[in-house]
Simulated assay, not measured.
Amino acid sequence: MSAVEIISTVLVLVGAAVALTASIGVLRFRDTLSRMHPATKPQTFGLLLVFSGAGVRLGHNVDVGMLILAGLFALITAPVVAQRVGQLAYREQRADSGLTRSPTEVPTRDE
């Protein structure tokens, strides 16, 4: 095995592990605002690591440009989608009340 194959394999496996932990986080968190973090940040990072591993493996192939474009598209769209989902959840009051309360508010007994 060459050094390029080892680096490529490590990047793809680490990216897949990060994406797996992000998907587990989406399943384990209880409300929409909490689920937005693992659905966007680690998921996008794992995808970029997988793309990097594929790019290293491809070398100077023309397809590396498509991997770069796909990675840029993921980086641009993930925060926008998360912001829109968060707005919708907040507007429809589907968020956990502890997450939307300001730090100066005192919780009541029913919360």
Rank of each mutant, 00 (worst) to 15 (best):
L67D: 03
D63V: 06
A22F: 00
G59V: 10
M66P: 01
A95M: 05
Q93M: 08
A74V: 08
E105D: 14
V18D: 04
I76F: 15
P103H: 14
A16H: 03
F73S: 04
V4Q: 12
I6P: 06
A82T: 03
V50H: 03
S97H: 15
L47N: 11
G86K: 09
V81K: 05
V56E: 00
Q83Y: 15
P79Q: 13
L88Y: 05
S2D: 11
L13P: 00
G59T: 12
G55P: 02
R30T: 11
V4K: 10
T108I: 06
L49K: 04
L11Q: 01
E111Y: 14
L20A: 14
M1C: 06
V85L: 15
L75G: 07
S97E: 15
A82N: 03
L99I: 06
K41D: 07
R101N: 01
L27I: 12
G55A: 14
V80P: 00
R84Q: 12
R28A: 08
R57H: 12
P42A: 02
D110V: 12
G71V: 06
L67A: 09
V18Y: 09
V12C: 05
E111C: 13
P107Y: 13
R57N: 02
E92N: 10
D110Q: 11
S2N: 13
Q87H: 12
P42K: 09
L33T: 01
E5L: 11
Y90S: 15
V14T: 10
N61D: 15
A89C: 08
T77W: 01
A3I: 08
G53H: 04
G86C: 12
E5V: 09
